[in-house]
């Protein structure tokens, strides 16, 4: 479904991403783990078109989108929940969802159906539909961000650190939700620092180190790799 071939990405003069390749197949949950500053968010921004690679190609369903503007990529069926949630703080919950469904705004029945679906998935959003999003708690904002991304019926959903800054109890909640979305047929690419939780729900995983893919394999393989265990999983103090 998504195939990234040898991309390089730079911020100004500094090359953040060096020759990164990976792929996501239909129906999978793929996770990219890595330390802070390894370039995870940069990869996500590049796939969604907010940044442009200096080299390499990004194939989405066979079409090269490396040079396509972000808003056109969304139209192809690729949605992202950005890092730090980024809900529109001065819009109500409902208006956030309306904006999420901007692309299907002409298809009223579909739009209604999606809204209902999101309210079923996240009942708290229905309760707060008239509330301004900036006043929601962090966990609720994350749910709204996911729901907003799902409004455009994406084939592939990108999630950038959905657990960051959330209380432990919400973290579990969010991962349950991701699993549910996957079961309903959405393909998911996830970037996470909480390697342990993420690997539990993933099919395959990549490890990103200083802008390069250091390791790739099934989630089980990665979870049992001694180096990954040492640097990202257990046996550490904090």
């Amino acid at each position: 479904m998504l195939k990234v071939n040898n991309i390089h990405v730079s911020y100004g003069k500094v090359e953040i991403i060096k020759q990164v390749s990976f792929e996501v197949n239909q129906g999978e949950v793929v996770v990219i783990i890595g330390a802070n500053g390894a370039g995870k968010t940069t990869i996500m921004k590049t796939v969604t078109g907010l940044l442009k690679p200096t080299q390499g190609e990004i194939l989405f369903e066979g079409q090269n989108i490396a040079r396509t503007p972000a808003e056109k990529i969304v139209k192809l069926g690729l949605a992202m929940c950005p890092e730090g949630r980024q809900v529109f703080p001065q819009h109500t919950v409902y208006e956030n969802l309306v904006l999420g469904g901007y692309l299907i705004r002409k298809d009223k029945p579909m739009f209604q159906k999606n809204i209902e679906q999101m309210y079923n998935l996240f009942p708290i959003l229905k309760e707060r539909s008239k509330q301004v999003a900036g006043t929601l708690s962090g966990g609720e904002q994350q749910m709204l961000a996911i729901a907003r991304a799902m409004m455009s019926n994406p084939k592939l959903l990108l999630l950038d650190e959905p657990s960051a800054g959330l209380a432990p109890i919400y973290v579990k909640n969010i991962f349950d939700m991701i699993q549910k979305l996957s079961e309903q047929g959405t393909t998911i690419l996830l970037v996470e620092q909480m390697a342990n939780m993420a690997l539990k729900i993933a099919d395959r995983a990549y490890v990103l180190e200083t802008g390069r893919i250091a390791l790739g394999g099934t989630a089980v393989e990665i979870m049992n790799d001694p180096k990954v265990v040492e640097s990202y999983l257990g046996s550490k103090k904090y």
Partner: peptide, 9 residues
């Protein structure tokens, strides 16, 4: 950028 992610130019 977030607006672009909604498919809005």
């Amino acid at each position: 950028s977030v607006t672009k992610l909604m498919g809005i130019s």
